[in-house]
Structures are given as C-alpha cells and as structure tokens.
C-alpha cells in the first residue's frame, strides 16, 4: 500500500514538480537576459565561457592551500554522488525502466560502493566544516543545512536498501528521494544546473572585456 503509493502516484508528483520547477527556474534565469554592452567586444565570448567552465573547477591561484579542505572533501562528495547516482546498477535499471526507456553500462558493484564511501565521507566532512567554521556558519542559511540533511537522508536510506530484498526499505528510499526532488527546485540544490550558467556568464562577460577570468 505504502510502497504502491510511493512508487506510483507520489513518484509522478515528485517527478513533475522536479522537472517543471527546474525548467521554470532555468527559464527565469535566461529570461532575465544579459545587460546590453555597448562597448565593442575585444574577443568572442564563447571561448571565455568554455574556459571559465573548466578553470572554475579549481581554486584561484594562491588560494589552493586555504581551500584544500573544500577541494578534497567537496570533490569526494560530488564525484562520488555523480557516480553512484548515474552509474549504480539499481539506478541505471530504474532510469531504464521508469524514465528513459534505455540504460547504459553501470559500474561494477565495488566501484559503486567505493563511490558511496567517498560521497558519504565528503558530505559529512563538508557539512561539519559548514557548521564548525566561523565564517561558513555565519553565511549558511537554513536552506543550506536542509539541502545537506535531505541529501544525506536520501543517501542513507539508499544505503539501508542495499540488500535489495526488502520492499519496505526500498519504499523508504523512494520516499526520501521524492522529498528531495520536491525540495530541489526551491533550493540552492539548483546549483547542479546553474553552476554552468553562472560560470559561463562570467567567462563570456570577462572575455568580451579581454580578461581571462
């Protein structure tokens, strides 16, 4: 009963809110447009946009030591989450059956678990840093904490359901993931999509001014 609701109607409700919400928010960003720049551009913006997409994946020169913690723990979490989200066998199967109609080769089980190890360690570390660091704590809002906690719970329940023999555990994982999906478009979790827009915007704007940002 609970399982049927969670895997049936609630899944479609959550999916709709997620997709519509994300599309609306992205449209909102694009609709706000770019301020007209009357000065003649020194360079084409596209190259700068692509450049910044890559260069912003690392710290600015001179800041690497100070940001080493964020670099290591942050990438542990994000790369781990990316692998376990899109390349874990159960997830690929779910995407194939319920979303796209086609799947791809998943990573072997041990790689999936290793990715989960990294993701969990990274997430706990970056969140503790957020709470413990005096500046991080002061610039964090409820949204930041809520996003971390919901993500952690979704990952944790997924870990609980790893044995794949108990429907109740899978239902709990589905439920927490659906809560996360509903919350997603209303939160900073949107950075999963908007990071590319902001980076390339900055890069393009700076390239027109002749600066390598």
């Amino acid at each position: 009963m609970f399982l049927e609701f969670v895997e049936g109607p609630l899944w479609y409700i959550a999916l709709t809110i997620f997709v519509v919400g994300v599309v609306l928010r992205l449209l909102d960003v694009f609709r706000s447009g770019v301020r007209t720049d009357l000065a003649p551009p020194r360079r084409e913006g596209l190259g700068g946009a692509l450049r910044t997409l890559v260069t912003r994946s690392w710290t600015a020169p001179g800041f690497t030591r100070g940001a080493a913690f964020h670099l290591v723990a942050g990438y542990m979490f994000h790369l781990g989450l990316f692998v376990l989200l899109f390349f874990a066998a159960p997830h690929v199967l779910f995407i194939e059956e319920r979303l796209l109609g086609f799947g791809w080769t998943p990573v072997p089980y041990w790689a999936f678990i290793l990715a989960a190890n990294f993701a969990f360690a990274g997430l706990i570390l970056v969140w503790l840093r957020r709470v413990m660091h005096p500046v991080m704590r002061r610039i964090s809002t409820l949204d930041d904490h809520l996003a971390v906690i919901l993500t952690f719970i979704a990952m944790f329940t997924g870990c609980m359901a790893l044995f794949q023999h108990h429907d109740s555990l899978r239902a709990i994982h589905m439920l927490t993931v659906e809560v996360l999906m509903i919350y997603f478009p209303f939160s900073r979790l949107m950075h999963a999509f908007t990071f590319a827009i902001s980076r390339s915007y900055t890069g393009a704007a700076m390239a027109r001014k002749g600066i390598n940002a």
Binding site: A116, C159, M160, A161, F163
Partner: peptide
C-alpha cells in the same frame, strides 16, 4: 527485525571503510 538487520548490515559494511580514514 530482518529488514532492520539487513539495513544495519549494509550500513555497517558501507560506513566501515570510512572509519580508518
């Protein structure tokens, strides 16, 4: 309890390798 124990086992095994770190 079977569901609880299965979840506990998987969590224990997955979080275990983080502890050495």
């Amino acid at each position: 309890f079977s569901a609880t124990a299965a979840a506990s086992k998987e969590i224990h095994n997955l979080f275990g390798p983080i502890f050495p770190l």
